[in-house]
Amino acid sequence: MCPTDTETMAERILMIDDDNRLAGMVQDYLGGAGFRVTVAGTGREGEALLKRETFDAVILDLMLPDADGLDLCRKLRATSDVPILMLTARGEPMDRVVGLEIGADDYLAKPFEPRELQARLRAILRRKGGGTAKSDILRFGRLEIDKGARVVRIDGEERTITSYQFALLLVLAERAGRVLSRDALMDLLKGEKLEAFDRSVDVHVSRIRAAIEDDPKKPRRILTLRGTGYVFAKDQDR
């Protein structure tokens, strides 16, 4: 799985984390997904590497032996616009806000699902490559709803749904955590052009589920509330 020089297309990632075993495993995992990962064990080493070489993205741990990840992030941001994904295990909800305010592009809490790390990495790389702005992407765990490109992705992979279904998904996702009745959904979708044959919301929902749920029979993202309507889960893939 080791990258070779011929793999010029492989995106170069710098991972700054003092846990070399974890870093080694992430290196293997992401290597298998086509990334070239370089590991730095300390903040200083990471900075030095960033000066010498160019990377497409940085995975930065919040707690480093010689530096505070937040300070380092701020420092990197001041000199470069390389996408930064923060890794942390602090577990205070405020960390997320802080991490993003100081210029990190995304944030992931340890322990993380490697697939999600990969998906988020792809997302920040895509944004850097002129993709949709961060504010136009709704992210729920491994699920990504790209409002700009009007596509939906799981683990960074596009899933096919119709444009009406996309509109329905968006209406639900933008109101995540709220119960929406079928009537309310129909109302919200009034402006959308209906497809050739009109079908009930339920049918569209099951199509969307087939596209985005791991197990459409046991939905985790779009939930049915019997006799009431639907709710789009706010906290997914935990």
């Binding site: 942390t88 340890k110 993380f112």
Partner: peptide, 21 residues
């Protein structure tokens, strides 16, 4: 607590990645 959280969650992250590997 933050450190304990970090120290406990780091091996968990390793297990999680290892399982995926």
């Amino acid at each position: 607590l933050a450190n304990a959280s970090h120290e406990l969650r780091t091996p968990l992250a390793r297990i999680s990645v290892a399982a995926a590997l």
